[in-house]
Amino acid sequence: MATSQAPTRQAITLKGSCSLVTEFFKYAANTVLFQRGVYPSDDFHMVKKYGQTVLVTQDLALENYLDRFLVLVIISKDSRVPLERWVFDINVIEPPSDSTEPSPQKPESEIQAEIRSILKQIVSTVTFLPIIDDPTVFNILAYTKDSADVPADEWVDTDPLAIEASKSQQVKLRSFSTDVHRIEAMVAYRYEG
Rank of each mutant, 00 (worst) to 15 (best):
V47N: 06
V54P: 01
T136V: 15
E23W: 03
D149N: 13
L20I: 15
A11S: 02
L129M: 09
F88S: 07
T13F: 05
S19D: 07
Y65W: 04
H181Y: 15
G51L: 00
D134G: 08
K15D: 08
S17F: 00
D98F: 15
S175I: 05
S109W: 03
I118R: 06
E94K: 13
A28H: 01
V21T: 10
L33E: 06
S168H: 01
D89F: 11
Y27R: 05
L33T: 01
N30H: 10
E114V: 08
T53E: 08
T31M: 02
T31H: 07
D42Y: 10
S166E: 13
S109I: 14
R68N: 09
D159E: 11
G51Q: 01
A152K: 13
Y191C: 12
E63W: 00
V87P: 00
I131F: 09
Q52S: 07
A61L: 11
P151N: 14
R36K: 10
R174S: 14
N91L: 14
H45D: 06
M186W: 09
V47K: 06
R36N: 07
A165F: 08
D179C: 10
P96T: 11
Y189F: 15
V123D: 08
V47Q: 01
N139R: 14
E63P: 04
Y189N: 05
A148P: 04
A188E: 14
Q10W: 04
T13C: 07
L161A: 09
D89T: 15
A2C: 07
D43Q: 10
C18L: 12
V180M: 05
P40Y: 07
E184N: 13
S175T: 08
F69C: 02
E84K: 08
P82Y: 03
W155S: 02
A152M: 12
S4L: 14
L33M: 01
N64G: 07
R85Q: 12
T3F: 01
D134S: 15
Q52F: 05
D157L: 15
T178H: 03
V81D: 04
G51K: 04
H45S: 09
P40T: 11
V54N: 01
L72H: 06
F24H: 03
V156K: 10
S99Y: 07
E110I: 15
Q169F: 12
T53K: 10
L33S: 02
A2V: 07
P82T: 11
I74G: 02
K49Q: 12
A11N: 03
D149T: 13
P102E: 00
S103I: 10
I74C: 04
P7T: 10
D42W: 06
V180Q: 04
Q5T: 02
L62D: 02
D157A: 14
S79N: 05
L62Y: 00
Y189S: 06
D43I: 00
F176I: 10
H45L: 04
E23D: 12
S19M: 04
R85W: 00
S97T: 13
K106W: 00
T144M: 02
R174K: 12
T22I: 04
E192R: 12
V123R: 09
P82Q: 06
L72C: 08
C18E: 12
F128Q: 03
Q105H: 11
A185F: 03
P107L: 13
A162R: 12
Q170F: 09
A188P: 01
I115G: 04
F34H: 12
I140G: 00
L55E: 01
D67V: 09
S17W: 03
A188R: 14
